[in-house]
């Protein structure tokens, strides 16, 4: 289990340096853990699991500067997931308490199959056309940012800025989705 922390932390550090491949691996690994984490706690609403996974991944990405690399990355990510889960219950007016668990348990991976996130699609649909195409076209293997930008009719530099803005807008819209 501490192996997972070592691995995640190393990948995240490389990601912070701009290594997109390492960063992708880090997020994918984290996504599996998040799915297991939420699924265990939301047996009543399995349909919301993938939404929360996606919302949390967006938050992890946009808030990554608040991780103090002297501390455990898993503990940090667990705290983000926990916050998103409690916030989800609060918005849905679900009365539920979440015991303070050790973040080691957070590492346990018995993840169900990934589902489909509906809220992200809804948020995506409310974005301007150019940003929307950009977010759904850009692939690490496949369409590069430059190519995806060209398809949206903008330069690579503009695509970079537009993608970042789009991700921020998505996070904000998903959070407000069920107000």
């Amino acid at each position: 289990m501490t192996d997972t922390e070592t691995r995640l932390k190393a990948l995240m550090l490389r990601g912070l340096d701009g290594d997109a491949v390492a960063y992708r691996e880090c997020l994918a690994l984290l996504g599996v853990r998040l799915r297991a984490y939420f699924a265990r706690r939301m047996s009543g609403a399995p349909g919301d699991v993938e939404d929360l996974v996606q919302e949390t991944l967006l938050a992890v990405h946009l808030k990554r500067s608040t991780w103090d690399s002297a501390q455990s990355f898993t503990a940090w990510a667990h705290a983000v997931a926990r916050y998103k889960l409690i916030d989800h219950w609060r918005r849905r007016k679900i009365r539920q308490t979440l015991p303070i668990e050790d973040h080691i348990e957070f590492l346990a991976a018995d993840a169900p199959e990934p589902g489909v996130g509906l809220e992200l699609d809804r948020a995506l649909a409310s974005l301007p056309e150019k940003q929307r195409t950009l977010v759904s076209d850009v692939k690490l293997t496949g369409l590069s940012l430059a190519e995806a930008g060209a398809r949206a009719g903008i330069s690579e530099g503009a695509a970079k800025v537009a993608l970042h803005r789009a991700l921020k807008a998505l996070a904000e819209r998903m959070r407000r989705a069920d107000g």
Partner: peptide
């Protein structure tokens, strides 16, 4: 949207400034 696709988009944004540290 599949989570994998979202992760692709996030990874493509890896080089964007993560923002100054809280300090």
């Amino acid at each position: 949207m599949r989570t994998d696709d979202l992760i692709d988009a996030l990874a493509s944004d890896a080089a964007s400034a993560s923002g100054a540290t809280p300090r």
